[in-house]
């Protein structure tokens, strides 16, 4: 029996889909059988990020409405044999699927896959609740900005209420020069407010946007920091202890990294 992990944030546009695509791919590259499940019905884009848009025949709503079998809707990735995508429906809205249906689906998928990565919609309404209902664990994405941290905090509170055990944090789009100039929160500030374990820090990197537009998750190719960050996150998800990346060579930062090692 595998494990289902929901990727969530409250705020939109902070990198849930990008993160889902990359850590799903990284987990598959590490030899796991992985299913990416896009629950952002009406605004699907995981298929685009994965470059699989033109292969969609059936979607999530077709599956739960039993218009097709789960296997028929699963799209095999072009590059990784062990990676599959179950796309969201584009024409329906969030009410097209219930929490019971999603719970059933993730249960079935976990029989088949080591990891089911659930990409969730923005917001804290029904779509969020549905996405979360199928999850064993949760990853919360926040960018180092007040508004994003506030929304992440709200989401963590709701996750606790929905009984999704101890969510883990990914700080996305980190820009060290902005922190130095005082224009951005530092990672340990974010961690101290949210008071949850840090799973990783992903730098802000244009290459990620490029890769997204090409439909090629950056972990597949790039040897840079961002790609490494995603792979390290995948390792930590699998229970390995990996030190945090030094995003910048500065003594103060290194000292902080050491402090974070306990979170790995």
């Amino acid at each position: 029996m595998g494990e289902s992990i929901v990727v969530t944030s409250g705020k939109g546009g902070v990198g849930k889909s990008t993160t889902s695509a990359n850590i799903g791919t990284a987990l598959a590259l590490a030899g796991n059988k992985v299913c990416l499940l896009d629950t952002d019905i009406g605004l699907r884009n995981l298929d685009v990020l994965m470059g699989l848009e033109n292969r969609i025949i059936f979607d999530l709503v077709d599956v739960v409405e039993k218009k097709c079998r789960i296997k028929q809707a699963l799209i095999k990735d072009k590059r990784c044999d062990a990676l599959y995508l179950l796309p969201a429906a584009q024409t329906k809205d969030k009410s097209a699927i219930s929490t019971e249906q999603l719970r059933w689906l993730t249960y079935e998928l976990k029989e088949e896959f080591d990891y089911v990565i659930i990409d969730s919609p923005a917001g804290i309404e029904m779509g969020f609740k549905t996405a979360v209902s199928g999850a064993d664990r949760a990853i919360v994405i926040a960018t180092p900005e007040n508004a994003s941290v506030r929304d992440a905090d709200r989401v963590i509170g709701l996750l606790e209420k929905e009984n999704v055990g101890s969510p883990k944090l990914i700080v996305n789009r980190f820009r060290s020069h902005l922190v130095k100039e005082g224009g951005m929160m530092d990672v340990d500030e974010v961690v101290s407010v949210l008071a949850i374990d840090l799973l990783g820090v992903v730098p802000d990197d244009e290459e990620i946007i490029w890769a997204g537009n090409q439909g090629e998750p950056i972990v597949l190719h790039n040897k840079g920091l961002a790609s490494k960050a995603y792979r390290n996150i995948a390792k930590r998800i699998q229970g390995e202890v990996v030190p945090l990346l030094v995003l910048e060579k500065e003594n103060k930062m290194v000292a902080r990294m050491k402090k974070w090692l306990g979170f790995a």
Binding site: N146, R150, D153, R154, V193, L194, A195
Partner: peptide, 8 residues
Amino acid sequence: LGDVNPGG
């Protein structure tokens, strides 16, 4: 024993 976060 704990924090009260912004918005709480």
